[in-house]
Design a protein around this nucleic acid. Structure first.
Length: 552
RNA sequence: GGCCUGUUGGUGAAGUGGCUUAACACACUGCCCUCUCAAGGCAGCAUUCACGGAUUCGAAUUCCGUACAGGCUACCA
């Protein structure tokens, strides 16, 4: 076809497209950002639930944009109308809010490079397609599904590469007359790329994460525009990321095979190439087969984003986990810098794992514990209260009524460099601090305590009478030792071990007795702190309660 | 079938030709500290980096095969 014929063809195919690509280029000017700023984007399809892997890539988009003072935008990629589900878009935006992974611009977040939803950009895509047809770089293809299947079968038998390329791209060189005829017959068509590539040539690509990769040049006449006039992912990616001035495309590993195509598209469209960063998928070693597989909605509960909210895993702790799989050196940094925030860590692509990242639930839990250990009582209270309001109203009310006490309990052993690490989730708090609230303690005392030992109630009553709670931990313990030795108990377990027959027991036995009576368990955080918060009256009440229960 | 990518302990992983007798973290085990637990300290846990060759004075690191795993090979993203 001559250029004149191609112009005629383009007009024939897209009579309603009147703008030129130059006009669009003007509507999407360069961004005014500092040197080195990254522009990233999260481009989900509203086809189902958001899962950990999606969250991971969005998280990476966010941190890289943030730390370079760039921009991170949300673009809804809804070009496949068939797979679209109701509420899919709302689901995406609400999850980004829930997980505090917030774009700086994009769909529902505003910005000057919209519309940020592909179904509203059809005219733009078609404008560029029209131009490509004029240039002879794209063409209408009228092949039926059946024809394509036949080609596929033939290729399978001949063991050659499967797809529409070279000699198989039969509609490539249709004459204008032939096209007109097919159009007149109402034959359906798609627009395909007229790939200028040769698979015998090698291209080298540098991925920000994976490094150097070699591919054969792309030579397939890939579909650019579907028969309903909407673009395929590939074409929309090229157009949108060019116009929106994305600098780094951070996306899942499953896209690496498309790199040659994408590079070719940028080339023939005359666009400046973007940088790619392909993130390895989050995988899991299957318990049954032992094989590595992608996480699955059905088998892995933590796959879905809802899991974290429902189980009371703090969002900030999940961020910590995402950070540890985003950059392998993050964890060490976090452990070394007890007083710093995630935002102070400098993420970098070359510290990103290349192979598949496996989900490690035990590690997540440990990170959660570390997270809680660094929070003071008041913060633990506030966050747990907020979570309980949504998931356990009854407990929320109890927290509210015991606010002062709870903050003190949550603050036990939080001073110093070695804070307690016993809570991993908001949902652990109720159980872990069951002794903190009188009404809960009274109703649950028996179910919690399973020991069979009996303790000398009178001795403990006498001890409580004598002991001074208004003092330091050290003095209290000295006084307790003193009490022990004047009542026939060894002041230290070591003494007792040397001559067990000389004593009724040792100071630890006395502590254990009090502990069981006031907390209902043999293990607890610092005993003196608990005694102090409760005060003598409540301690005595609990001792009486113990007396009642131990007498049957 | 073709094209890519990956494979280091119980787990997540560091490692980019010699400071590696393979870091760190999680888990586990033992000891210490200690009124219990948590935390913390110490020690143990891969004589070896999927396997086989090659290059090199020297390889977990480079190259070539093999096996296994994952991805792509859609008018899905």
């Amino acid at each position: 076809m001559t250029e004149k014929e191609r112009i005629e063809l383009a007009e024939l195919l897209f009579p309603n497209i009147t703008k030129t690509r130059e006009e669009y280029e003007k509507m999407y000017p360069e961004r005014n950002l500092p040197e080195g700023a990254m522009v990233t984007r999260y481009g989900p399809s509203p086809t189902g639930s958001v899962h950990l892997g999606n969250l991971l890539s969005a998280f990476a988009d966010m941190v890289y944009a943030k730390q370079t003072k760039g921009s991170f935008f949300l673009r809804i990629e809804d070009t496949d109308q068939k797979r679209k589900i109701d509420g899919g878009i709302e689901n995406i935006t609400s999850i980004l809010h829930d997980f505090d992974i917030l774009p700086t611009e994009g769909y529902s977040f505003g910005g000057n490079y919209g519309p940020y939803i592909q179904s509203e950009r059809t005219e733009i895509y078609q404008t560029y397609i029209k131009d490509l047809i004029v240039k002879g770089l794209a063409y209408p293809c009228f092949m039926t599904e059946e024809e394509q299947n036949n080609i596929k079968e033939e290729q399978a038998i001949n063991k050659t590469k499967i797809g529409i390329y070279g000699m198989y791209a039969v509609d490539r060189d249709l004459s204008l007359e032939e096209v007109k005829e097919k159009l007149a017959n109402n034959e359906e068509y798609v627009i395909r790329l007229k790939s200028p590539g040769n698979a015998n040539n090698q291209i080298e690509v540098i991925d920000c994460i994976k490094g150097k990769m070699k591919f054969p040049e792309h030579d397939m006449d890939t579909v650019l525009l579907k028969k309903d006039g909407t673009p395929t992912y590939h074409f929309a990616h090229a157009i949108d990321d060019h116009l929106m001035h994305t600098t780094h495309v951070i996306r899942g590993d499953e896209w690496v095979s498309s790199i040659p195509l994408h590079i070719q598209l940028f080339e023939i469209l005359g666009f400046e190439p973007v940088k790619y960063a392909h993130i390895a998928p989050i995988t899991i070693k299957d318990q049954e087969t032992g094989n590595i597989r992608k996480i699955s909605k059905r088998k892995d509960p933590w796959f879905g984003a809802k899991y974290y909210e429902e189980n009371g895993i703090p969002i900030e702790a999940l961020h910590l986990y995402l950070a540890t799989i985003t950059n392998t050196n993050f964890e060490e940094w976090y452990l070394d810098n007890t007083d710093k925030d995630i935002s102070e860590f400098e993420f970098s692509f070359d510290k990103q794992a290349i192979g598949g990242t496996s989900f490690d639930e035990a590690k997540l839990m440990n990170l959660c514990k570390t997270y809680f250990s660094r929070k003071r009582g008041e913060e633990v209270y506030n966050e747990t209260y907020q979570w309980s309001l949504k998931h356990d109203e009854e407990y929320a009310k109890l927290l509210e009524n015991n606010r002062e006490d709870m903050i003190k309990f949550f603050d036990i052993e939080k001073d110093g460099p070695r804070p307690r690490k016993d809570i991993a989730k908001y949902s652990d708090v109720k159980e872990e601090f069951s002794y903190a609230i009188d009404s809960m303690f009274e109703s649950e005392f028996y179910s919690k305590y399973e020991g069979e030992k009996t303790y000398d109630i009178e001795l403990i009553k006498e001890y409580v009478e004598e002991i001074n709670l208004d003092t330091t931990n050290e003095e209290w313990f000295n006084a307790t030792k003193e009490f022990a030795s004047t009542h026939g108990y060894a002041a230290s377990p070591k003494d007792y071990k040397k001559n067990p027959d000389d004593y009724k027991g040792h100071v630890g036995d006395i502590c254990e007795a009090i502990r069981v009576m006031i907390t209902g368990r043999t293990k607890s955080p610092d005993l003196f702190s608990i005694m102090k918060i409760l005060g003598k009256d409540r301690i005595n009440n609990r001792i009486e309660l113990y007396r009642k229960y131990s007498n049957g």
